[in-house]
Design a protein around this nucleic acid. Sequence first.
DNA 1: AATGAATGAGACTTCATTCAT
DNA 2: AATGAATGAAGTCTCATTCAT
Lengths: 206, 206, 206, 206
Amino acid sequence: MNSTAQRSTEASRPLRRARGSVHADSRLGLLLDTAARLFCTQGYQGTTVRDIAQAVGILPGSLYSHFATKEDLLVAVYERGVAQICRSTEQAVARHEQPWPRLEAACVAHLEAILRDDDYARVVVRVRPSDVPDAAARLAGSRRRYEAMWIDLIAALPLRRGASPQALRLMLLGALNWAQVWYRADGKASPRTLARRFVSLVRSDA
Amino acid sequence: MNSTAQRSTEASRPLRRARGSVHADSRLGLLLDTAARLFCTQGYQGTTVRDIAQAVGILPGSLYSHFATKEDLLVAVYERGVAQICRSTEQAVARHEQPWPRLEAACVAHLEAILRDDDYARVVVRVRPSDVPDAAARLAGSRRRYEAMWIDLIAALPLRRGASPQALRLMLLGALNWAQVWYRADGKASPRTLARRFVSLVRSDA
Amino acid sequence: MNSTAQRSTEASRPLRRARGSVHADSRLGLLLDTAARLFCTQGYQGTTVRDIAQAVGILPGSLYSHFATKEDLLVAVYERGVAQICRSTEQAVARHEQPWPRLEAACVAHLEAILRDDDYARVVVRVRPSDVPDAAARLAGSRRRYEAMWIDLIAALPLRRGASPQALRLMLLGALNWAQVWYRADGKASPRTLARRFVSLVRSDA
Amino acid sequence: MNSTAQRSTEASRPLRRARGSVHADSRLGLLLDTAARLFCTQGYQGTTVRDIAQAVGILPGSLYSHFATKEDLLVAVYERGVAQICRSTEQAVARHEQPWPRLEAACVAHLEAILRDDDYARVVVRVRPSDVPDAAARLAGSRRRYEAMWIDLIAALPLRRGASPQALRLMLLGALNWAQVWYRADGKASPRTLARRFVSLVRSDA
DNA sequence: AATGAATGAGACTTCATTCAT
DNA sequence: AATGAATGAAGTCTCATTCAT
């Protein structure tokens, strides 16, 4: 619902202007936050320009003072989402030195971001590039840096011979991302617990 | 509303009328097949009633001789999808007796269904119930039978103490389903290979 | 809701076939009754062919075995309505010999018919010919016989010099017909009472 | 939503843009005028959004910049109609002091408004609230103020003992309103004459 | 930056009606 | 007489976007 923990100043929840944003004193920050919230809640196609404008407190046409198209707005949100999930994950990883703990920390950070903390990050998982054909390439491009990070994380693991690092990465990220489909906040297991269980299932050194 | 399940391949992909059907319902069959194809290709919201009607060769309004709403059509497709993925998986599982091979067979069948074989099954994974709020309950209901099957498959495994069967199920299914997002048919690894790799990663008895 | 008191045999309320209708054993009687009920309840434009067919228990297309168009069905209902309101009024009038009591009896019969007793008669007042341009002439033609009766009734009155018989007729019928707009069955005054009050207001011989 | 009431004749019938309006809202005024004209000519259900938009010279969708639904547009027209018929009647009444002449003036004003002068007023009589179920309550609410005026007018009359004021009001208004059904502008009697005849028929003090 | 009205295309759906069976 | 599927036109309304102000 609200964006990151680290940057809460910008995600001013109510309708008024955010301060301290890189985007100066404009409504741009609020606009992005709102779009992120609606995109991750209702999906890209399920969110209308009207929805966003109304939640921000402007008219639909005014949105085009900031973004040329709805897709551009999505791309902006998506890029921020990738940036933030990268940052969260990097910070979490940096606290550990051993490869498996580092991987586990990444999984926890990732899952917490896409389930709870960060509307921007949630959009990255919620919106399939193929749902927005014209922007698919740009979205996929944004994602790449994050994937590179995961490739490194996995490469550092002492896997047993024959195990596919790529399969491990796809499996872990897939399992984590799909949690967005079934996870309910009122459940018993927290994102953190879930992430740890997933990791322990594939941890071959135990 | 929809007809049998025994005729899954009868009128699968072609744009024109099915040939040689024993039933006289070829139009309805074609309609469902077409809807399944478009829904899994473009998503539910990305597919218009016009798209479907045009691909079938009828007028948009004619669709409403068969289904009262677009959502009802989705539900019919979805229910067929669940039925077929259940059938495929059950058949695959039945060829094995040991728990891990049974699970592996299920994963292979599941992944092949949602990546390649079966437009109906693909819809089940492609369309999130929450994207279609008014039909969400019906869709989720359909899914339940399939989930029950997986719970049984997992319960039969000799897991090491402390491992969560639920986490294992959610992890495997999530990883498999998410493959729909990144899998490209021209890739090196077949669905079968992928599924086996995923299973081997979580196989604790090796 | 149901049609006349004198012909209750035909107006079999539930969905099954009427017996003893002039229209033999067919569903025609039921069809007409149902159309009358819906037309007077929801208006002509507010009633769809589907509504009628469904209430009768047939398919929309089957309606066209009986009537070539929806308008033809309306005309048939309307003509019956005029016939029945004529009959009711004539019977009521026949019980009196003096001109004013005859007029009063006509008003009572008319108002009871269009407010309560007779769905067919209600249609005659409810549906404006101008709402159905293509059938307007036929509807207006049906009405004529009834109007002639009223002209005679009024002509028999001993009006004071200068009073316009035409104005009196238009006023009385207008006041009665408009009651359909505001009358509620749960009100205090019965149609009979209302009709009498209207007559007494214009009765110049008191 | 709708603008002033002081400009009733400004953009009355012409198909094209109003000339010389003091206001810049000519488009909205034209829209309302056009809707009033079509609603009173063809009825509410007989008038399509396309009809209105085309007569105004905009696209159907553009109508929704001003009104959220077709019903909202009707309500706006209807409310104006009640306002204007109130105003016309009040002005006419104000020119007389005796109760019967005041009533007669009201009848004349009412009849002229709903037969000739004022498309908005005509809509009030032409459209039955029960034909537009979702807006019925709002329409009926609008009407109330006008009815209150009539109750006062009637209450001031020196009726003979036993005469029901309510019946007199319902009779007069019913007779006047129903004239919309049968009146043709080319007839011999003017609305004014007709209204006077009606009043004289119920005038008990002559 | 923002407004408010409008655009143009297209959304889903309904309607009366047809017609082979 | 009735069916069931289809037609073709039209229904109301929504959408992303534009543009003069």
